[in-house]
């Protein structure tokens, strides 16, 4: 009997704005059929299973599988085609997003994601201002971009507690400095 994580079950159910739609999932598999990633990988990427395991609260089973193959979760390209086609209107991409948040907290993430969050924290933008591009902007007649409120972004990210998740690399950087 898999271990049931009632927090996951409750959080996933709470995601359903306007009702507990996830309980309407009857495992028809349309999400898999219309998914461009599933079409390429078959059973390796299977949103139907992800929805079922989340609805049941089988976090441990699911996360063990993600540990073996992160693609089970991170293979989602967030195109939201499944959401549009689901006959029960289950916001599958939102559930996957919730699971991604939990996976990041557990350290089960491609490095791209925490790294891109650190870029935003340190620059206020996911892609920092670049002198060469600024020159190009001036040549194109659109001038320099407006001031970026980096301090406000840093203060907000400090307050949300995300730095606890992003902190690891910083410590490493301090160590090597």
């Amino acid at each position: 009997m898999p271990k049931i994580d009632f927090n996951v079950k409750r959080d996933v159910l709470d995601l359903m704005i306007g009702g507990e739609k996830i309980s309407y999932c009857y495992q028809c598999g349309i999400c898999n059929d219309v998914c461009p990633v599933s079409q390429r990988w078959g059973s390796r990427y299977n949103p139907r299973d992800t929805v079922l395991f989340s609805a049941l609260g089988y976090k441990e089973t699911l996360f063990l599988a993600i540990k073996r193959d992160p693609f089970i979760l991170w293979g989602c390209t967030a195109c939201e085609t499944c959401d549009e086609k689901c006959p029960s209107e289950i916001p599958i991409t939102e559930i996957i997003c919730y699971l991604k948040n939990a996976a990041v907290a557990a350290g089960l993430t491609p490095e791209f994601y925490p790294e891109s969050a650190r870029t935003i924290r340190d620059n206020g933008m996911a892609i920092p201002v670049q002198p060469a591009i600024n020159k190009r902007r001036e040549k194109l007649g659109i001038g320099l971009p407006p001031n970026i409120p980096v301090d406000e972004v840093k203060a907000i990210m400090e307050a949300t507690g995300i730095n606890k998740v992003l902190g690891k690399k910083e410590e490493k950087e301090e160590g090597t400095a």
Binding site: A78, N101, V104, P114, A117, I120, M125, A126, P145
Partner: peptide, 28 residues
């Protein structure tokens, strides 16, 4: 006209890391 916006933030980047942080920066 322009304004002092920061990153939107990325709905397929920061939102995957932490939904609340993503929402707070968007709210700003």
């Amino acid at each position: 006209s322009s304004a002092e916006f920061a990153c939107c933030p990325n709905p397929v980047g920061l939102k995957f890391v932490d939904n609340k942080t993503w929402c707070a920066l968007a709210a700003r």
